[in-house]
Design a protein around this nucleic acid. Structure first.
Lengths: 230, 230
DNA sequence: CGAGAAATTGAAAAGATTCAACTCTCGTGG
DNA sequence: CCACGAGAGTTGAATCTTTTCAATTTCTCG
């Protein structure tokens, strides 16, 4: 069904530990699709029909409140599994997944979950590990929201973005993705105004260079100090 | 190893869908222990050696920040599985579990996880379902912390407690557990002072009757309106 | 080049925390 | 059995952080 070479994907986080035969089996049932920037992989509450592995691009998972506010729950990068409702015995997607850049993703109908569970158990175990990390990250974030003030939360959001998409530049590390003040606000539970003020002050301190939808970290070290507090 | 009657536990959430043989198999390998109020089942970062099902009592899961602040992540009631590190391919416990009342819990060494996965798959599936609910609840809470103000968060914390331990009384519903203002503050990311002020105002409105470590909800309906906003 | 989105910034207001003093409640031990 | 002390709770006042409102400015793309 697909003409992807197993060796191209064998190092992706989702497929770590699979042997060639397993990779081929998995690929033989996979569909591959392009999702253009802005397109939704699935939306909150929608019936879950398939699960995904991101091959290329970048996506964000968001939730929307009744009064229309958005919260960015997290980002996914190539190699991540997502939309794995069957791993959690859910039949709807709990959030909306949006392509932030053009994306290529593999996906399978949900019925393959149980098949892979038997035939490629490592794949399913990897997914459970990913769930564990996400649960842990969620709880970290709850603690952060409950105890830290805004500047630190914003710093952490930026540090996370740097870790996920940072590209080395002459002067520092640039976030390789158009990110607005509003996006950062939705990642850290504040307003774009407050983010703007914080960025201005960091910029004055020579910590970052910011522009329209772009952020370059000049002193990752100092930013981490703000984020972690020591 | 244990003389618990399968019929006593067959309706617990953790064991839903197991047949008698499976229940007996599971029980035959189980240990049962009493944890007195205040005792820890396990602590954050500790090597995970066993997983649990709560039979009786009530426990809270907490995280502590570097500067000693506590955040109550969630509560567990009889029938809940917890400490299921193997389900998430973790080898340490991610948080601390404390008995809030005297508790009785079943527990198994972690090696039984893989055994049960084969022999009692439904048990493991139930656990994954529980993980899914928890991940979902965590994300709800993140949204809540990011977008709602304190009074609403406190209202939600109280509503959750009522759902988990509410006991009908003459005038309303009482939370059947000693809960301090500080506890509510740690559940909702605020200070005991703010909780105290909010409770005073609710009390003046006739919404709740509060006392030392006790909360009785007189108008659940109005409280839900504060919590949910409509 | 013009239009619209993104960002900045000041000023005012709101919301919550911090500090501090004080009160209440309950269990314990004299 | 009562007094006392510690833990739990309350409340005012000051302060601080963040948001809200509003007015501009800057960028970038078509």
């Amino acid at each position: 069904m697909l003409k992807i070479d197993p060796t191209l994907i064998k190092d992706l986080k989702a497929f770590v530990g699979l042997d060639i035969d397993e990779l081929e089996l998995v690929l033989s049932d996979a569909h591959s699709s392009l999702f253009v920037k802005g397109e939704a992989f699935f939306r909150e509450g929608e019936k879950a029909t398939r699960f995904f592995v991101l091959l290329d691009g970048f996506l964000q998972v968001i939730r929307t409140t009744e009064n229309g506010e958005q919260v960015i729950m997290r980002h996914f990068a190539p190699g991540d599994v997502f939309g794995i409702a069957p791993a959690l015995r859910r039949d709807t997607y709990p959030a909306t997944a949006l392509a932030v850049a053009d994306c290529v993703a593999l996906h399978w109908p949900n019925r393959f979950w149980d098949i892979f569970e038997k035939k490629v158990p490592r794949l399913v175990q990897n997914a459970h590990g990913a769930v564990g990390e996400r649960l842990n990250a969620s709880q970290d974030r709850i603690v952060e929201m409950a105890t830290e003030q805004v500047e630190r939360r914003v710093a952490r959001a930026v540090v996370r973005l740097v870790q996920q998409t940072g590209k080395k530049t002459a002067k520092g590390i640039r976030i390789d993705m158009p990110i607005s003040r509003q996006d950062i606000a939705e990642m850290s539970g504040t307003t774009l105004h407050t983010v703007s003020r914080i960025f201005s002050s960091w910029s004055n301190l020579g910590l970052v260079a910011v522009g329209r939808q772009k952020i370059e970290v000049l002193s990752a070290h100092k930013l981490v100090i703000i984020a972690e507090g020591h």
